[in-house]
Design a protein around this nucleic acid. Sequence first.
DNA 1: TCCGAACATTAGCCTCATCTAACCCCATCT
DNA 2: AGATGGGGTTAGATGAGGCTAATGTTCGGA
Lengths: 226, 226
Amino acid sequence: MRPLNCCEIAHTEAVEDYLRVIFKLAGRGLPVTTSAVAEQVSVAPPTVSAMLKRLEASNLVARSAAHEISLTTHGERHAMGVTRRHRLVETFLVQVLGLTWDEVHTEADKLEHAISDRLEDRIDSVLGHPTHDPHGDPIPPRSGRHVEAWSVPLGGVAAGNRFRVQRVADDDSDALRYLGERGIRPGAVLEVVSREPFGGPVWVKVGARRHALGPILADVVHGEIA
Amino acid sequence: MRPLNCCEIAHTEAVEDYLRVIFKLAGRGLPVTTSAVAEQVSVAPPTVSAMLKRLEASNLVARSAAHEISLTTHGERHAMGVTRRHRLVETFLVQVLGLTWDEVHTEADKLEHAISDRLEDRIDSVLGHPTHDPHGDPIPPRSGRHVEAWSVPLGGVAAGNRFRVQRVADDDSDALRYLGERGIRPGAVLEVVSREPFGGPVWVKVGARRHALGPILADVVHGEIA
DNA sequence: TCCGAACATTAGCCTCATCTAACCCCATCT
DNA sequence: AGATGGGGTTAGATGAGGCTAATGTTCGGA
């Protein structure tokens, strides 16, 4: 094996997928483990082991003694590039092609690998250089600082508070559709009416309507106390 | 080997590329040979041999005794689908994202594999169901009849004729840029002033300007005598 | 009639990305 | 202490898609 050099690995779609997923897990403060990555990429754990070995050899990820996975500077730069394309595409699909916010994640998963730099710039410019995608996720700039900033989950807010939605996890398209139909999207302000104990729902008021959101839903909605 | 069934092959990007190239060569009336396909797909001839074997086994292409390659009904349907996405994307990139007609072929080569049916329909609808792409190539309908209709090349038109440009081959982006800068694009009407012999240029008049087009250029421009 | 060029195919090898089955390490519970 | 189980990894296989080098095959020209 020769000296570590990030350019020795092909920028295949698989590599981009793994990098984006690692970036996503890390950004949410979740443990970045072999099995977590396997689940997100939808492959078996040994497949991840093999890929991580290659990513490590190409200096894109680093691993501590305790199996801890993190992106190197190089790795993070690439991951942010893929994430930027992903989120720009999502925004584009909603704003220009009229798709709904629950449809775009799957589409963007494929398109993010097919967008050239030139195209990325055109899309960015047609959209007026957006800072956030339809789920409220911040779009990393082409170069420069970027923070993922996952704020408080709705599930952790006490009753009686007003809560401004900032981000909604884009993973679960059924959840997105459900929430969207009830007006729960970035920018919306909810009133947290009450919280049932023992994994029960959170009652929220959106405008005049009340909704009971189960723990799964309450966890995908993030924001701040307004 | 089991009975031939078109669905036994994965619809990978490579398969789509080969099908589209075979469709393109056949549509232009060019010989569809192993080496012609190899050149168009940018791979070595043995790679094409191997792929053709698979395509034949999946009933997507048929081959005569004399090595003649043709698409089956199934193969043609798939090829037309890929071609439709390719040309819709090209049109979209020009009309919505403001790319130039010499840039879009390369981009579409990647994007054509990443467009879902849903997305294809949205693009089609946003563009108002276009019938031709920016190079004048007809966009195959989602289903139904389609003809490729490569009419007369400019190189075969006698001096003294007026010539209406219908299609310009999208392969060579340098040629496209050169022609575009001189106003030679689908819809333009040229006057064929004179033809130099021995592979010399064709002199054409576009509006008030004259241009000498070498045999390569004169061959990529197709149309009809006006 | 024979020879060489052009073209297709076979043979043999490689990488990427995936799988299942088996194994190992370590923490925990009995 | 020993059994149990969860995660990670190794081993070994597979299929897609690509390569080069060698081997037909066929056809036109000398």
